[in-house]
Measured scan of single mutants.
Amino acid sequence: QIFVKTLTGKTITLEVEPSDTIENVKAKIQDKEGIPPDQQRLIFAGKQLEDGRTLSDYNIQKESTLHLVL
């Protein structure tokens, strides 16, 4: 699982696999929060994550925290 922290300070927990794409993660966030993926920007280690890449591409491991910017 990974954590996604929103600007409001809320933390969302997501069940993911390293092979999941960023697009996939955004879809999971939409399921939980109702935020359309095209409004979501995910930041990890100061980098904006691209939809077509996977979590493992960015070396995002379990218990990692991503930041969600709208």
Rank of each mutant, 00 (worst) to 15 (best):
I43E: 08
P37C: 11
Q39F: 09
R53V: 07
A27I: 14
N59H: 10
Q39D: 08
E63K: 07
N24A: 14
N24S: 14
T13Q: 08
D57I: 03
L70Y: 11
I12L: 11
L42H: 00
S64P: 03
K26T: 02
S19W: 13
G46N: 07
I2N: 01
E15C: 15
D20V: 04
Q61N: 11
Q61K: 13
A45C: 14
D38E: 12
L68Q: 02
L55I: 10
T11S: 07
T11G: 03
Q30P: 02
L70K: 07
F3D: 03
L7Y: 15
V25D: 00
D31I: 14
Q61M: 10
K62E: 11
A45N: 15
K10W: 10
D57T: 05
K10Y: 13
K26N: 01
T6A: 05
F44I: 03
L14F: 05
T8A: 13
D31P: 02
S64R: 03
T21H: 04
T54E: 04
D57G: 04
L68W: 02
N24T: 15
D57K: 03
V69Q: 09
Q48F: 13
T54M: 11
K26S: 02
V69G: 06
F3Q: 05
G9F: 04
G52M: 09
E17W: 10
Q1L: 15
I35D: 03
K10F: 10
L42G: 00
S56I: 08
T8Y: 14
L55Q: 00
P36W: 06
K10G: 07
Q1T: 15
K5W: 06
E15S: 12
Q1A: 09
E23T: 09
I22P: 02
D20M: 10
A27F: 15
T13C: 11
T11M: 11
Q61V: 12
D31N: 10
L70R: 09
T21N: 04
I12R: 02
K32L: 12
I12N: 01
L7H: 15
Q30H: 13
K28F: 06
P37T: 14
L55Y: 01
T11E: 05
D51A: 07
K5A: 07
Y58K: 01
Q61W: 07
L7V: 12
A45E: 13
I60C: 03
E17Q: 10
I12C: 03
A45H: 13
Y58D: 02
E23H: 11
L55M: 06
Q30D: 05
L42A: 00
L68E: 01
I22D: 00
E63F: 14
T13P: 06
Q30S: 11
Y58S: 03
S56E: 12
P37Q: 10
I12K: 01
S56C: 07
L68S: 02
T8V: 08
I2A: 02
P18Y: 12
D20W: 09
I60R: 01
I29Y: 02
Q1S: 10
L49K: 00
P37I: 14
N59K: 10
K47F: 10
T13D: 04
L68C: 03
I43F: 15
I35P: 04
H67D: 09
E17C: 14
L14W: 01
I43T: 10
R53K: 13
E50H: 08
Q40F: 15
T65D: 04
E33L: 14
I12T: 03
R53E: 04
K32M: 11
I60D: 01
K26W: 03
G9M: 04
E50C: 14
H67F: 13
H67K: 07
I22Y: 01
S19V: 06
A27R: 15
K10M: 10
L42R: 00
A45Q: 14
A27Y: 14
I35C: 06
A45L: 13
R41N: 10
G52Q: 11
V4W: 01
T11P: 04
P36E: 07
P18E: 10
K28W: 05
F3M: 06
P36V: 06
P36I: 05
D20Q: 04
Q30L: 10
Q1R: 14
G52S: 12
E23G: 13
V69H: 10
V69S: 08
K10I: 09
V4L: 05
L42P: 00
Y58W: 02
Q40W: 06
A27N: 12
E15V: 11
T21S: 08
T54R: 11
